[in-house]
Simulated scan of single mutants.
Amino acid sequence: MKDKIAVISLSKGILGESYCQFQKELAENRIQELGFSIYYPTHVLEGAEELAEHPEKRAEDLIECYKEKDVKWIFSVIGGEDGYKVIPYLYQQKEFFQNQKNNPKPFIGFSDSTTHHLFFYRLGIPTYYGMSILNDLAEEKENLLSYSKSQLVNVLQQQSLLKLSSSPYWYEERKDFSPQGIKQARVQHKECFGYEWLGKSSMQDFSGALWGGCIETLSRLIEKREEYPDLKDLLMIKEKEILLFLEPSEVKSKPTKMITMVKEILFEVQQQGVTICGILFGKPQDECFYEEYKKELQKEIYSLPILYNVNFGHAYPHSLLPYGAKATFHAKEKEIIIEQKIEE
């Protein structure tokens, strides 16, 4: 029997909607091509309205995935904006999840899934930031984006070293998500900038444990933690020295708003006594506000080394970043090396 990849909606529950059926079939085929079968927990296909009204069902699906012995990976369907509503239900089962450390099922997602990454990270369960079912596996009828596919295969094969370098191409977000639109290749552009160094000193090596996520989601967690006290624990960092990875979402926040949120996140980290060894900043989607974001970072965060235009987050293609793993940027090679601890 094949190992299974479970697909789960911890945020927006749209996979069961009729307009997603073409992408659902694409994802099923792509998962089979990767050597796995697909697993649908009980509620994942019940539709967007039902799952929006019942965050406890989303939590129940996650627990079900852990109980299903053949499930080896758990993949988020897509992001959203209310993933934090699941957290109180997950904390009611905190002991259950703590007991899963010896049977880890790595979680993959991004955007609003930042919330769930932090939950798993706090419990020591492996988790990879950067892809989702609808944004990656249910893409283009013929092939995954080659850069994204290479990154995903390396992770699924559990390679102990992951290497990231700048993709030679970037791709626009789709404007047409109909079946006919999805069949068309994304609009492709040659990458003109590559990794850009924004530190006040000359480009240099830096390293630390990976921690971070979507800027807008992290800002929302900081804002909502008084209303949802369990969120306070999510923002606690276990390591003393981190490589902070941050990326702007598809809402394309104005530059002044973006830098305000980034400064909030930096304050949250630094007041814990955690040292930020450097920042990996994801490529803005469609290169929107590309130069403006850069200028704000250089003006406001000038004391930290910043590697700008890294291929993760809402811009395409995607890479995968494992929370808590040691990552090192090698300036001479312009390459990021991530060292994973792989459980035998």
Results as ranks from 00 to 15, higher is better:
residue 1 M to Y: 08
residue 1 M to N: 10
residue 2 K to I: 04
residue 6 A to K: 11
residue 7 V to T: 09
residue 8 I to H: 07
residue 15 L to W: 12
residue 15 L to P: 01
residue 16 G to I: 14
residue 23 Q to M: 08
residue 24 K to Q: 06
residue 26 L to G: 05
residue 40 Y to K: 00
residue 41 P to L: 13
residue 43 H to V: 09
residue 44 V to I: 14
residue 45 L to C: 04
residue 46 E to H: 10
residue 47 G to L: 10
residue 48 A to W: 11
residue 49 E to P: 08
residue 49 E to S: 10
residue 51 L to M: 12
residue 54 H to A: 12
residue 54 H to D: 15
residue 60 E to N: 10
residue 61 D to Q: 03
residue 66 Y to I: 08
residue 66 Y to R: 08
residue 69 K to T: 11
residue 70 D to E: 15
residue 74 I to D: 00
residue 75 F to W: 08
residue 82 D to S: 13
residue 83 G to C: 05
residue 84 Y to Q: 11
residue 87 I to W: 03
residue 89 Y to A: 04
residue 92 Q to Y: 02
residue 95 E to V: 10
residue 97 F to W: 03
residue 111 S to I: 02
residue 111 S to R: 06
residue 113 S to H: 14
residue 114 T to F: 07
residue 119 F to D: 08
residue 120 F to M: 12
residue 121 Y to I: 13
residue 122 R to H: 15
residue 126 P to W: 00
residue 126 P to E: 02
residue 127 T to M: 06
residue 129 Y to D: 03
residue 130 G to A: 11
residue 130 G to T: 07
residue 132 S to E: 11
residue 137 L to V: 07
residue 140 E to I: 00
residue 144 L to N: 11
residue 147 Y to D: 03
residue 150 S to Y: 01
residue 150 S to A: 06
residue 152 L to F: 15
residue 154 N to W: 01
residue 155 V to Y: 02
residue 156 L to G: 12
residue 161 L to S: 09
residue 164 L to E: 02
residue 165 S to T: 15
residue 165 S to H: 12
residue 173 E to Y: 12
residue 176 D to G: 02
residue 177 F to N: 10
residue 177 F to H: 13
residue 184 Q to Y: 07
residue 185 A to V: 14
residue 186 R to C: 01
residue 187 V to G: 07
residue 189 H to S: 11
residue 192 C to P: 13
residue 195 Y to R: 07
residue 197 W to E: 14
residue 197 W to R: 04
residue 198 L to M: 06
residue 199 G to H: 01
residue 199 G to A: 01
residue 202 S to K: 11
residue 203 M to L: 12
residue 205 D to H: 07
residue 209 A to T: 07
residue 210 L to N: 04
residue 211 W to L: 12
residue 219 S to H: 10
residue 221 L to Q: 10
residue 221 L to C: 09
residue 224 K to E: 15
residue 229 P to V: 10
residue 229 P to D: 05
residue 233 D to Y: 13
residue 235 L to P: 02
residue 238 K to M: 09
residue 242 I to P: 06
residue 246 L to A: 02
residue 250 E to H: 12
residue 258 M to N: 04
residue 258 M to Y: 02
residue 263 K to W: 00
residue 265 I to M: 00
residue 271 Q to M: 12
residue 275 T to P: 00
residue 279 I to L: 11
residue 281 F to P: 04
residue 282 G to S: 02
residue 288 C to K: 10
residue 289 F to M: 06
residue 290 Y to E: 03
residue 298 Q to Y: 08
residue 302 Y to D: 08
residue 302 Y to A: 09
residue 306 I to C: 00
residue 310 V to I: 15
residue 312 F to K: 06
residue 318 H to I: 00
residue 325 A to V: 03
residue 325 A to K: 02
residue 326 K to V: 14
residue 328 T to P: 06
residue 329 F to K: 09
residue 330 H to S: 00
residue 331 A to R: 03
residue 335 E to D: 04
residue 336 I to H: 05
residue 337 I to T: 13
residue 341 K to C: 08
residue 342 I to W: 07
